[in-house]
Nucleic acid binder design. Structure first.
Lengths: 295, 295
DNA sequence: TCATGATATAGAGCACCTCTATGTCAGAGT
DNA sequence: ACTCTGACATAGAGGTGCTCTATATCATGA
């Protein structure tokens, strides 16, 4: 097999027309260049250079070879440049999957920050429920998934990166309910606004009711958290939401949280990654972004 | 500096998705491949493969790199192929087939020129009639054929490269016939010297007579144009020949052309090649020689 | 639980490249 | 002519780094 280093030396020699100069460029000695050229000539079975008194000059065969070797090395160099720029996050893509409202209410500030910092990384977002995201992850269609915990899969590495606290909120119409601590069973006397079945949040609230042996009567169920919040504000009932997602509304008093004696346990949101593959540079950096506090 | 051998190993590994298989292809051992990939990854500072339990799989960065490395190596390989074919010019051979008198009267100057330019190419000449040449071409026994046009074959690429003009010539004995324009039918009053049946030239002259509804009475028919010309000079009659083949004799007035009212159409001579195989370097150069003017 | 088929690691060995030193040669300058 | 300069070639020593064998480790599927 032909030594590839020989081609690199050939290329420099051909371009400078001078073994000694080529040697300097390559930080090796002139005899090494001489040796390498000789090796290459012998492997190919043709003379590549005519040795003149003032340097070397390509033969017809050498010139023919150069026409291939030069672009070949340009490509390799371009490849190395590409890798460098991927490493510097000057290019690349980041494929994120996230469930329901997490993109809008939780991921958005991180995405904004990341996009400002690395404007040339193409961000692709995929919406999907947790099992769907798991499937996409395993198939390599997304780099990482953002899911409600608990969630586990043999092939996935899921690590919590944020805890969230859920609560019930009401609008002005039911404001008085927020002025004293309620027993859990009293909630049944209010119309309940929940996310549709199948969402992690819905599962979670169902479990909470079940844990206390309380029946759960749902009055309004919606796929969109946005709409849920709006209806709560309009006085349609008590909505089960993550507190931090409505912090603005709570501050501006367009929503009120219902204090409940039986505390709603904390949940956490996790990052799901394929266990056996390493992250792309962009994905790794995004995970860092997620796990360190926003400025 | 990055070891180029590493790229070759990377390429094979990426394509087979399996270090062990790549090692076999490269005739080295699996640990060597493992080592090389690791080296490359460390030099570039990125992981190129995810190690799975059933082989390896490119990472995003690896995939990006492959897009450059693969064409780069294709180029190198093409370069090596080119060199190999150029080398053939040092030792190769050129097998030409040509009909009848074409070798001697048309090809010879080109052959001389080619032989001077590429003295190490062994030239093999095959004599044969057009259909025979076609058969040899198709069977790969010759690289190219020189044939009278028109001629076509599904498997052959035939391109005209020279037009020729035929004429009737006589020796001193019939010189007076050359001093006025003859009607075609007057030719019948001269003894006619033609090439033997089966030759393209004979076919052509027969067609010409037939086109004018003239009977053709052949007095002397020979396989050799050389002899035909000699007999014409000796006054045996009018010979049908290609004008450029006897230009020397016409100049030196050992032969005279008969002016004829009905013009004899031009013919052309073509190069026949096999359509589906690429020419050897030597054959390609010879075709160049034929299609560009002699110095 | 075991067999299978992967990759990773450790450590020895040596091939091949690279170096230093020196030879050879052609051309320019005096 | 002679020498000086700048080039490439050759010889031989030396050491780096690749490659090998042997073995570990790990995941998967039966």
């Amino acid at each position: 097999m032909i030594s590839l280093e020989g081609y690199r030396i050939f290329l420099h020699t051909a371009k400078s027309g001078n073994l000694t100069k080529a040697a300097q460029e390559l930080h090796i000695t002139q005899p090494s260049v001489s040796y390498a050229i000789k090796q290459l000539e012998e492997s190919l079975g043709v003379k590549l250079f005519n040795r003149l008194s003032k340097g070397v000059e390509l033969t017809a065969e050498g010139r023919a070879l150069l026409e291939y070797v030069e672009p070949s090395f340009s490509l390799l160099e371009a490849g190395e440049t590409k890798i460098r720029s991927l490493k510097q996050l000057e290019t690349g893509e980041l494929r994120i999957g996230a469930g329901g409202s997490l993109i809008r209410y939780l991921l958005l500030p991180y995405l904004k920050h990341f996009r400002t910092r690395y404007p040339n990384i193409r961000i692709r977002l995929t919406h999907g429920k947790t099992p769907d995201l798991a499937k996409r992850l395993i198939e390599g269609q997304i780099d990482l998934g953002i899911v409600h915990m608990p969630f586990a899969d043999r092939l996935l590495d899921v690590r919590s990166f944020m805890t969230i606290q859920d609560c019930f909120v009401v609008g002005e119409a039911y404001r008085e309910w927020s002025e004293r601590t309620l027993e859990a069973e009293e909630l049944g006397r209010l119309p309940l606004l929940l996310l549709s079945k199948g969402s992690s949040t819905r599962q979670f609230v169902e479990q909470w009711f079940a844990a206390q042996s309380l029946p759960l009567e749902v009055d309004i169920e919606l796929g969109s958290l946005e709409l849920l919040i709006e209806l709560a504000q309009l006085g349609f009932g008590a909505a089960f939401v993550t507190r931090s997602f409505v912090s603005k509304e709570l501050e501006s008093r367009s929503l009120y949280e219902l204090p409940i004696r039986e505390p709603i346990p904390e949940r956490s949101v996790g990052i799901a990654l394929r266990r056996d593959i390493s992250l792309s540079e962009a994905a790794a950096r995004f995970v860092e972004t997620l796990t360190s506090p926003l400025p």
